[in-house]
């Protein structure tokens, strides 16, 4: 599901377009930090710490065997988990995190890809969730596009919600 983003990130890394690279993650990182900390000022502060780490890594010219998206979310998780508490801004990422095996982050990806989260739902329901949560279509538009009743669309959305609640402990 994230192939296009990953390819664009790879290009931006190769061309050194750090502003565009980091801009894409500005809102998602801020939202995640706020959602975890539940305090707007603390969330903004944590998000800035995340971007300082990411920037320091970029300036070092470090390369990664995983998509940059994975690096961003790992740095968010380490920051929110207090990994760098008391460390200097230029402290490096954990050395043992350098992943050699190409599928080493496959397990991690299962929680970071909507398509994988909904993978065991019936295809029709997956289509509904894809149109709603990837494209943002209104339920009426989804019903029309897929030739379904509005009620069937609502039921599919509800099942997707239950799936997320089951996974993320809602």
């Amino acid at each position: 599901m994230h192939h296009a983003r990953d390819a664009e990130d790879k290009r931006l890394l190769e061309t050194g377009e750090h502003k565009l690279l980091l801009s894409a993650y500005f809102d998602p990182v801020r939202e995640r930090c706020f959602l975890r900390l539940r305090d707007r000022a603390a969330g903004e502060e944590a998000a800035q710490q995340v971007f300082v780490r990411l920037l320091e890594e970029l300036r070092r010219g470090r390369t990664y065997p995983v998509p940059y998206r994975v690096v961003v979310w790992k740095v968010v998780e380490w920051t929110l988990g207090g990994f760098w508490h008391g460390a200097k801004d230029d402290a490096t990422l954990p050395e043992d995190w350098d992943l050699a095996a190409p599928d080493a982050y496959a397990g991690w990806e299962a929680d970071h890809d909507l398509a994988l989260l909904f993978a065991d739902l019936p295809p029709r329901e997956r289509d509904v969730l894809d149109l709603r949560y990837r494209e943002g279509l209104a339920p009426e538009q989804i019903a029309e596009r897929l030739g379904m009743t509005r009620n069937a669309v609502d039921q599919a959305l509800h099942r997707g919600h239950l799936k997320l609640r089951e996974r993320f402990g809602g």
Binding site: L20, A24, R32, F51, R134, H161
Partner: peptide, 30 residues
């Protein structure tokens, strides 16, 4: 409950393309 669901969604959803203001804001900060 909503916070946990939204965090799960944000980490799994497609990363949206940044708008011009966001690019400018990040550029200034950098």
């Amino acid at each position: 409950e909503l916070a946990r669901l939204l965090e799960g969604y944000v980490q799994a959803a497609l990363v949206p393309a940044p708008d011009e203001d966001t690019i400018a804001l990040v550029g200034a900060w950098l």
